[in-house]
């Protein structure tokens, strides 16, 4: 463990908590893409299949359970409890366009052709593109509530910090994982225009308005 990875995990946890608080306190999931949340739940499920078979540390196991529980709690809030506030009309990204290529690629490019490893690889590829429906929805609505942009900033920062962690691990322990690293770069690059808007607008107290 290093401060970059710990920072990344905490940013990820913060993002998940911000989202749950936003939906719970406003009792609305307006502006949030349920499809991205489905992809995140799918990502954690595919990645943490070894939750009971591969004990790494208490921290690792606790965080996996928290991520899984939060992901499914968010789906429950969005598709059951506050279903009436879910914005179907703007959350129209076709999930099969993301899930099928990630699954296909995981079968072709992986570290080892075993169930656990292919599922892990699938979760890595899927997570890289899981935010697309959300970014697509923000571009369709043309704006995002500031709480939603804080959520996206924390979520984007998490994998950016993981990239720093991988660079650090490469130089400090010679560890590298090209699949996780390249997918992490793609995932972070997808946030770039959002990061720009967040820093130039939201931090100045303006609303996040995407150029129409």
């Amino acid at each position: 463990m290093n401060i970059f990875r710990l920072g990344g995990d905490l940013a990820h946890l913060l993002a998940i908590i911000i989202l749950l608080l936003k939906i719970w306190t406003t009792r609305s999931c307006a502006g949030i893409s349920g499809k991205s949340q489905i992809l995140f739940a799918l990502t954690f499920t595919a990645r943490y299949l070894d939750l009971f078979t591969n004990f790494v540390s208490v921290y690792n196991s606790v965080m996996k359970v928290v991520y899984l529980a939060a992901a499914y709690a968010t789906l429950y809030l969005m598709y059951v409890k506050f279903k009436a506030t879910y914005d179907h009309n703007h959350d129209t990204f076709r999930l099969e366009f993301l899930i099928l290529p990630a699954a296909g690629l995981a079968l072709i490019i992986n570290h080892e052709f075993s169930i656990i490893e292919v599922m892990w690889t699938f979760s890595i590829y899927l997570e890289a593109v899981a935010i697309l429906p959300q970014l697509f929805m923000v571009s369709k609505t043309g704006e995002a509530e500031s709480i939603t942009s804080h959520y996206l900033f924390a979520l984007g920062s998490y994998r950016a910090l993981y990239i720093v962690n991988w660079v650090y691990r490469y130089y400090s322990e010679g560890f590298y994982d090209m699949i996780a690293t390249l997918a992490g770069v793609v995932q972070t690059v997808l946030y770039c225009d959002f990061f720009y808007l967040y820093i130039t607008k939201v931090l100045k107290g303006k609303k996040l308005q995407l150029p129409a």
Binding site: R5, D9, H12, D50, N54, V56, S57, N60, M63, K64, Y67, N110, H111, E112, E117, W120, Y162, N165, F175, Y176, D177, M178, I179, A180
Partner: peptide, 10 residues
């Protein structure tokens, strides 16, 4: 194999 040791990450 690098892939295996990734599994200590979330």
């Amino acid at each position: 194999r690098s892939g295996k040791s990734t599994k200590d990450e979330l």
